[in-house]
């Protein structure tokens, strides 16, 4: 049986025919839609390399069956930059050396973007300990965590400032 999955993928409507319900969102993105920015580390929910945003929430694409997502809005690392300009979190990762090999980076960035946009940021405030805890689902084998946390804190402040300026 073929299942049709309607997605808004990085802002674009897509109707995807799935011949096999076993396909995870991660394999759909990487193997079938050629969106290879989302990485596969463990394929078991343990590392966070596959983090994407589904309906505003960060989830592990490897633990989510594509067939279950009909009607969902999915954002991947490819959908962040607008008009050739990096997302503030992407820019902050570069500025703060929030990466070495870069394999965990798309997942780290998607995780941080969802965290800043969602309800969690208010609980975290400026507390680096709370932020480290909130980012613990993204593991970096290169140990770039220090730069990652600095980047996220900085991006969060800058995005909040930009919002204030816009409002004024």
């Amino acid at each position: 049986m073929t299942h049709t999955v309607n997605l808004v993928l990085n802002g674009e409507r897509r109707a995807i025919a799935l011949d096999d319900p076993r396909v995870t969102l991660l394999d759909l993105l990487r193997e079938r839609l050629d969106l290879t920015g989302t990485k596969k580390g463990c394929d078991r929910g343990q590392c966070g390399a596959c983090t994407v945003i589904v309906d505003g929430r960060r989830v592990n694409a490897c633990m989510s069956l594509a067939v279950t997502l009909d009607g969902a809005e999915v954002t991947t690392i490819e959908g962040l930059a607008q008009n050739g300009e990096l997302h503030p979190v992407q820019a902050a990762f570069i500025e703060h050396d929030g990466l070495q090999c870069g394999y965990c980076t798309p997942g780290q960035i998607m995780s941080a973007v969802a965290l800043i946009a969602g309800g969690e940021a208010a609980d975290i405030g400026d507390d680096p300990e709370r932020l480290r805890e909130a980012m613990s689902g993204n593991i970096c084998r290169c140990g770039a965590h220090r730069g990652i946390i600095e980047a996220v804190l900085d991006a969060r402040t800058r995005m909040a400032d930009a919002k204030k300026e816009q409002a004024a």
């Binding site: 929910g45 966070g48 983090t51 929430r57 960060r58 989830v59 592990n60 633990m63 989510s64 995780s111 965290l115 969690e120 909130a134 980012m135 613990s136 689902g137 993204n138």
Partner: peptide
């Protein structure tokens, strides 16, 4: 328990 990503699912 688990991670933020897993708790969301």
């Amino acid at each position: 328990g688990a991670s933020a990503q897993l708790r969301n699912a």
